[in-house]
Design a protein around this nucleic acid. Structure first.
Lengths: 257, 257
DNA sequence: GAGTGGTCTAGACCACGCG
DNA sequence: GCGTGGTCTAGACCACTCA
C-alpha cells in the first residue's frame, strides 16, 4: 500500500497543512460516494466489512473505523449479527428523527403519529431569503407547502416548507397528506432524497392572527419559532422549514454534552 | 486475563441479559472512577495510554477504545503529541459550553464575554419542583441565585439558578459576580464540582412585568424559556437553571443529525 | 453452522509537540 | 530524540442472527 497516495493531489496551492488524510478517512469518503450514488438504497444492507476490506484492499480494521464514523453521524446503522444498513427515516424506531418536540407528560409515543392537514402546496419563485438558505438564486422555482400537525386532536405545529423545485418536481398536497410515516421518508421513497443532518435556529415569537387561528390559540400567544435547514450528503441544503410550535403542553427537548 | 470476571457480580437477580460487558467498558468505568474521585484534576493530563494499559493489565488498544468513548462524551480531551486531559469548563476554546444562544449576525465571539449582574444569591428551602429536579427532598437547603447577562451592553438573559446547599456551602453573590470566566469553571475551582452533561426543556413564554424590566423589553414580549438540569458524573443532578432569553438579536442554535 | 458485527491483542509505523 | 496520541495490520475469538 502506498502510504498516502490520494488525498490532496489536485491543486498544490497554499496550504500550511500538508493535508494528510488517514486511510480510513479516504475509505469513508469512498463509502460515502457509494451511499450518495445510490449504490445501496435506504434500509438496505451494505456489503460486509470483510467484503469492503477486500474491495478497497485494506484491512477489516480500517473499514471498521470508517464505518464507525458513518454510524456516529447516523448515515448508517449497525446491527450485530445482521449487517450494516443504510440509515432511513422510515422504519426508524424514533418516529421523527429531527422533531425534538415532546409532550410534557406521558410516554413519548403515547400520542401516536401526528394528524397532518396540508393547507397548501404549490410551485412559486423563491424569495431572496429562501433562495439564500437553499443555495439557489432568487426567483428559482421552489415548492412551498404549509401544513398543520395535531397531536391527540390538538393542533400543535404549523409549518411552512420550501423545497428546491428541480429535485421535487411533481410534489402534490395529496402526496404529502396521504403518505403514511415521516415526510422525510416520503422524500426518500418518492424523490430519492435523503436528509442527513439539519441545523435549527430557535426563537420566541408572538402568534399573528392567522397563525393563532390555525393553532386555535389567542393572537399574541408566545410560540416557538423553529427555522430548520436540512441537508443531504455533501452539505447540500435541500429543505427550509419554518415551524411554529405551541409549548403549553409540549416542549422542545435538547441534550447537551 | 479472565474473560469476563467483574461486571455483574453482586445481585444475580432477574436479568434476561447475562449483562455481558466488554473489557473496554470496564476499563472506562475504572477511569471514570478516577475522574470522579479527583485523582486527576480538570485541565490536568491523565496517564498515557501505555501507562494505563500497564496499570489495568490490558492492551493499549483496549485503553484506547475506553478513552475514545470518554472523549466522545466530552469528559476528556485528547491532544496529539501531548496527552489526554481532563475536560474543563475553563480555558475551553468554546467559552460557554452549554450556552447555545448566538448572535444573529457577526462572529460568535465578537461580543466578548457577557456582563454579569448578580441580583440575588441566598440559601432557601427547596420548593417541591426544585427538589424534584435536584433529587433532594422538599425543604432541603438550596442556594438560589438570580442574575442578568448582557452582551454588548444589551441585557439578553435573566436566569435563576438553584444549587444543592450541601455541595455549594458558602457560595456568595460576590463570588458569582467577580469570577472571571464561565460560572461552571468557578464551580470546578471553588467547589470541585464538574458539570458533565445537561438536559434542556425549551418553551416560548411572555415576559411578566419584572422580567420585562430586567431585560428592558415591553411586558408580554415573547421570550425563550430554557430550563436546564446539569449533571455531574453518575448522572447526579447538581444544578437547576431557568433562563429567559431575548431572541430579537440572538437565537438558540441547534445541530441535528 | 455459517456469516455478520464486536472485542482484544501485539506489533509496527506515522504525525505531532516539546525540549 | 523522545514521548504522546493516531493509524494500520493480521489474526484470534466472542456474541448475535437466521436458516
Amino acid at each position: 500500500m502506498p502510504p498516502n497516495p490520494s488525498a490532496a493531489d489536485a491543486a498544490p496551492e497554499m496550504q500550511a497543512t500538508p493535508a494528510f488524510s488517514p486511510l480510513y478517512q479516504q475509505i469513508k469518503g469512498l463509502i460515502l460516494q457509494s451511499l450518495q450514488s445510490g449504490e445501496w438504497k435506504p434500509g438496505e444492507a451494505i456489503p460486509s466489512e470483510m467484503d469492503l476490506a477486500a474491495r478497497f484492499r485494506v484491512s477489516q480494521g480500517t473499514v471498521r473505523k470508517a464505518i464507525d464514523e458513518l454510524a456516529a453521524e447516523n448515515l448508517v446503522m449497525r446491527r450485530q449479527g445482521k449487517g450494516t444498513f443504510v440509515a432511513t427515516h422510515a422504519e426508524q424506531h424514533v418516529q421523527y428523527r429531527f422533531l425534538k418536540l415532546v409532550p410534557d407528560a406521558g410516554d413519548l409515543d403515547s400520542e401516536g403519529p401526528a394528524q397532518r392537514t396540508v393547507l397548501e402546496c404549490r410551485r412559486v419563485r423563491a424569495p431572496a431569503e429562501v433562495a439564500r438558505a437553499l443555495a439557489l438564486r432568487t426567483g428559482d422555482a421552489v415548492v412551498q407547502a404549509r401544513r398543520v400537525l395535531a397531536f391527540g386532536g390538538v393542533p400543535t405545529i404549523v409549518e411552512d416548507l420550501w423545497l428546491p423545485g428541480n429535485a421535487f418536481k411533481g410534489l402534490s398536497a395529496e402526496q404529502m397528506a396521504d403518505f403514511q410515516g415521516p415526510t422525510y421518508a416520503m422524500f426518500e421513497l418518492e424523490f430519492g432524497i435523503r436528509m442527513v443532518r439539519a441545523q435549527e435556529k430557535i426563537r420566541a415569537v408572538a402568534a399573528d392572527a392567522q397563525q393563532a387561528q390555525l393553532l386555535k390559540v389567542a393572537p399574541g400567544t408566545p410560540l416557538l419559532s423553529v427555522e430548520r435547514v436540512a441537508y443531504t450528503y455533501n452539505d447540500t441544503p435541500m429543505e427550509l422549514r419554518r415551524g411554529l410550535y405551541r409549548t403549553d403542553t409540549h416542549h422542545y427537548r435538547n441534550e447537551l454534552s
